[in-house]
Simulated scan of single mutants.
Amino acid sequence: MNIQELTQRLHAIRDRNEWRKFHSPKNLAMAASVEMAELVEIFQWLSEDQSRQLEPAVLEHAGQEVGDIVLYLLLLCSELGLDMDQVVRAKLADSERRFCND
């Protein structure tokens, strides 16, 4: 995944539709949260086993919600001046340090 390319494509959509005025960090964080709630709704009444064996249409829907979440987070990083690749790598390194030391 080329994060810079994806962000540029998102900016093109945003700019073409004049949505920048709506893309404050607050609004983007809230939008990502709403999309996360939509993802959670897919799993709400499923058992652990059912959640691992989604029907193809439901799996596709889950993928669409994951995509929505990631795209909003890319826009949020852009608005905050954060490098998505860098923050994810830093968090992963922190998790490795905290949870993989024997």
Rank of each mutant, 00 (worst) to 15 (best):
R52E: 14
N101G: 11
N2A: 07
E65N: 04
L80R: 03
A31W: 00
S47N: 11
Q64H: 11
N101V: 08
V70M: 08
C77L: 03
L80K: 04
H23R: 07
K21Y: 06
L75T: 00
D49W: 13
F22Q: 08
E65I: 08
M30I: 13
Q4M: 13
N27E: 04
M30P: 00
F43S: 13
L76A: 02
L6G: 02
L76R: 00
V87C: 03
L39Y: 06
S51V: 10
E60I: 01
T7R: 03
Q64C: 09
Y72K: 03
L75N: 04
K21D: 10
L80V: 05
M1E: 13
C77S: 05
L75D: 00
I69L: 06
E65T: 06
L73P: 02
T7A: 05
V87D: 08
I3H: 10
L6I: 13
Y72F: 15
E38H: 04
L10D: 00
N101C: 09
C77N: 10
R98K: 15
A62C: 06
V34C: 04
R52K: 15
E60W: 01
A31K: 01
Q64L: 15
H61W: 03
L39Q: 06
N17P: 02
A90M: 08
W19F: 10
H61I: 11
F99M: 08
C100N: 10
S51L: 10
G63W: 05
L46I: 12
A93N: 10
L10A: 00
M30R: 14
E96N: 10
D83I: 01
I42L: 12
K26Y: 11
N17C: 08
I3W: 09
E48G: 09
R52Y: 11
Q8D: 14
S78R: 06
F22K: 07
Q53K: 13
G63H: 07
V40L: 15
D15H: 08
A57N: 07
A57T: 10
S51T: 06
I42D: 05
S24W: 01
I3M: 15
Y72N: 10
M36K: 08
D102Y: 02
C100E: 08
R14W: 00
L82E: 05
R16G: 11
A37Q: 14
S78F: 08
A57M: 06
